[in-house]
Design a protein around this nucleic acid. Structure first.
Length: 733
RNA sequence: GGGUAAUUAGCUCAGUUGGUUAGAGCGCGUCGUUCACAUCGACGAGGUCGCAGGUUCGAAUCCUGCAUUACCCACCA
């Protein structure tokens, strides 16, 4: 045996070992020898191809690799399918920041000839470079995933399936286009889904504005508003039908205090009654600005008010219809509006007011609710073909335990969200994404779903042959929501037949609604089966101040830096031990150092064993003493315990147990007791004991610390497989 | 307004269905270098398990209430 370093040096080992694994082909389930028919499948949550991996990814990779390696050793046909996500809006935001640094913006590029295509290509190149780097990072973490099946959300095979789903849902009446108030980010100039807005508390003012009766300017009705700048877009004052105070005003006209000459829209506005108005808030009277508030839009629709009178532009500035406020940004317009109202004697009073304001979850710009035609998916209505609503399909699958949450509490969170779910806006006004496969007939305006190459030939409605393509792209979750069956090649491929439904969906709890819930709905709708059996949601890694790691907070820790210094195995262990599923762990370098020390302990204990078994014949089985048998019996108990923990997804407990056993039983006691015996005629017994325990400990530790265990396994005189990776998980010795 | 959790050693956290002296890492104290490992070993200090009740032979663990904290959801302008 060659001389071994007295300290373990992961840098010398990890890359070599990973290459060895890759070369073996065993990451691919088709190459695994002696498999049971049972499969175990995990789809790697595809990292966003817009940066590099952070510790959260490292946690994901570690947990999933533990499951995959464990099940592989249990003899299952294991598939771990890697991928990457184009991550539409998120990536565009990151890329726009890059452009900003260069002193330009997406709007500048879009102005150029062919700008849209150019910008798309730029972002494409950006993601491809990121994707390559991320793959290297995933490998450094030791992930035993099947690279031959890797997918990208923009792969033609994926897009094809995404389009087929769109078409199916459209024809089944679940997808529709509608003009309604959407969450508009004026900075990014796209609509966002309800999940992509962030509520922030603001200290604002509540302005009490008088609206005078048109035919009797001595009388007025007072309205409380936080947004006086939207008054030029008012088309009604609404009061609750049971509000006696205002009964006499209902049906009367009041003058708009901020605008004149709205042309055919008219300047006077009507007092109406609607039970959406709260009697006890403010003055009990609500100004109705249909184009700038979702509730107002609803009320406006009911009362046939103009819904399209927009006074704030897509850039967040007051437009030509805003009268004197024209050209001002919203906040400036608010000031100006107050001045005008005050001068006109229409401002009754001003109060301090604390409330929640919706902002863009990326840039924190205040969301401007604006009306726009968008594509939606129905969440709570049955489909035309009679399928239950997407919501009901999903809820029932969880209720009936077809899908089980490993961390029970997220099941409740899931139900709660599902109960309140609304239709999902899937259109985004950005470049980076999968185009919505819709064409509009340029003559009659009919929508045509066309999912083949090129464009439709003839309008089925009017026979016209020219069309305009929908410019919007899909919300990125529309494609990633179909990940389970799309990556497996629904509906024809063998992979789909073999590996769907998958076994475990393991991801962070922060994307329970964004991703997990949507995969459940899509999966059930499209395939009739749940996309996975278990949902395992891990926590979010926090820094010392309990803050979530993010690039904008500049508190991201690069896992590669840690790996270079302490080794991948040490990082993996430090992410697992003491971290109960679903809890948000706080990272600490101390912890990683502790498991680096453990790696070293494994190394040196193994070195001791290897140094003392040169003359041992692994084929003999010496007669063991009572004490020896007891030690083996105790070890067996460990394997049984650990197996139970692994089955229950309690990896943190299993890891701690084997850590404790290795250090404080195997190294501290067994090895120490063996030392004198190695000098006597009991040497073969001692050798047998040491080698047996070490071999089996390596197996138990392998899912957690794959590199060092594989490296040592390769030196064992009694190894029975070419790789530890495909050894059998110990049951009995 | 609704919901989900957390509260255990100086710090960061485990504690699986209630069961003997409540654990880990780091930190701290004393001692120890040839003999696998100083990225180590031996020994040790340190906790009324947030508070108050209850169930039980027995509670960190189950129930009720309270306090504090965190997060999520939500169209009161």
């Amino acid at each position: 045996m060659a001389e071994l370093d007295t300290t373990y040096q992961p840098n010398k080992v990890e890359e070599k070992i990973y290459k060895m694994w890759e070369k073996s082909g065993y990451f691919n389930p088709d190459n695994l020898p002696n498999r049971s028919k049972k499969t175990f499948t995990i789809l790697m949550p595809p990292p966003n191809a817009n940066g590099s991996l952070h510790l959260g990814h490292a946690l994901t990779m570690t947990i999933e690799d533990i499951m995959i390696r464990y099940q592989r050793m249990r003899g299952l046909k294991t598939l771990w399918l890697p991928g990457a996500d184009h991550a539409g809006f998120e990536t565009q935001v990151v890329f726009e920041k890059e452009l900003e640094k260069k002193g330009t913006s997406r709007f500048e590029i879009l102005k150029e000839e062919g700008g849209r295509e150019k910008l798309y290509q730029m972002i494409w190149d950006f993601t491809q470079a990121n994707k390559l780097r991320m793959e290297e990072q995933v490998k450094k973490l030791g992930a035993s995933c099947d690279w031959s099946r890797e997918k990208f959300t923009l792969d033609p095979s994926i897009v094809k399936i995404v389009y087929q789903t769109f078409q199916r849902m459209y024809e089944d009446g679940l997808i529709y286009r509608d003009n309604r108030i959407v969450n508009w980010c004026p900075k990014h100039q796209t609509a966002l889904s309800d999940l992509e807005i962030d509520w922030q508390e603001r200290n604002d003012k509540l302005y009490y504005v008088k609206y005078f009766l048109a035919d009797d300017p001595k009388q007025f009705i007072t309205v409380a508003t936080t947004r006086p700048e939207t008054i030029p877009g008012d088309f009604a004052i609404a009061v609750h039908p049971q509000n006696k105070q205002y009964k006499k005003f209902i049906g009367k006209l009041v003058t708009n205090p901020l605008i004149k000459n709205r042309g055919s829209y008219g300047d006077n506005i009507k007092v109406i009654s609607d039970d959406l108005v709260e009697k006890d808030f403010g003055t009990g009277a609500l100004k109705i600005t249909p184009a700038h508030d979702a509730v107002d839009f609803e009320i406006g629709k009911k009362h046939q008010l103009p819904l399209d009178y927009q006074i704030i532009g897509w850039d967040g500035k007051m437009n030509d219809f805003a009268g004197e406020l024209k050209g001002l940004p919203v906040l400036g317009a608010r000031q100006k509006a107050i001045e005008i109202l005050e001068k006109a004697g229409a401002l009754e009073k001003t109060e301090d007011y604390k409330h929640q304001v919706s902002t863009c979850y990326k840039c924190k710009t205040t969301i401007e609710p604006l009306p726009r035609a968008q594509w939606f998916i129905k969440m709570t209505e049955p489909s035309r073909s009679g399928k239950k609503s997407l919501r009901d399909l999903a809820v029932e699958a969880v209720k009936s335990k077809k899908i089980k949450f490993v961390t029970k509490r997220f099941e409740k969170v899931f139900y709660h969200w599902m109960q309140n779910i609304k239709d999902w806006n899937i259109s985004r006004q950005i470049v980076w994404g999968i185009p919505i496969p819709i064409w509009y007939c340029s003559k009659c305006g009919k929508e045509i779903v066309y999912i083949e190459e090129g464009n439709p030939q003839k309008c089925p409605s009017c026979g016209n042959t020219t069309f305009e393509k929908e410019k919007d792209v899909f919300d990125t979750w529309f494609s990633s929501g179909q990940w389970p069956y799309a990556t497996l090649g629904y509906p024809e491929s063998d992979d789909f037949k073999n590996f769907y439904p998958t076994s475990v969906m393991e991801t962070g709890w922060d994307i329970l609604f964004f991703w997990v819930a949507r995969m459940i709905m899509f999966g059930l709708y499209t395939t009739g089966q749940p996309p996975f059996e278990y949902v395992y949601l891990h926590g979010l890694i926090r820094d010392k101040d309990r803050q979530k790691m993010s690039k904008s907070k500049n508190n991201v820790i690069d896992p590669l830096g840690i790996i270079d210094f302490y080794g991948s195995d040490a990082l993996r262990m430090s992410l697992i031990v003491g971290n109960a599923p679903g809890n948000d762990p706080i990272v600490s370098e101390d912890k990683t150092r502790a498991y680096r020390n453990f790696a070293n302990k494994i190394w040196n204990a193994s070195r001791f064993v290897l140094m003392n078994v040169n003359d041992f014949n692994p084929n003999t089985q010496p007669v063991l003493s009572k004490e020896d048998k007891k030690i083996l019996k105790d070890f067996e108990k460990l394997t049984v315990d650990m197996t139970k923990d692994m089955e229950k997804f309690n990896f943190h407990i299993a890891a701690e147990k084997v850590y404790h056993y290795f250090w404080h039983t195997f190294a501290d006691k067994v090895i120490e007791q063996t030392k004198p015996r190695l000098q006597t005629e009991e040497r073969p017994q001692a050798q047998y004991l040491l080698l047996t325990l070490l071999t089996n400990l390596l197996k138990l530790i392998h899912p957690f610390m794959p590199f060092i265990t594989e490296e040592i396994y390769q030196m064992l005189p009694n190894k029975s497989k070419d790789l530890l990776m495909i050894e059998n998980w110990p049951q009995k010795i």
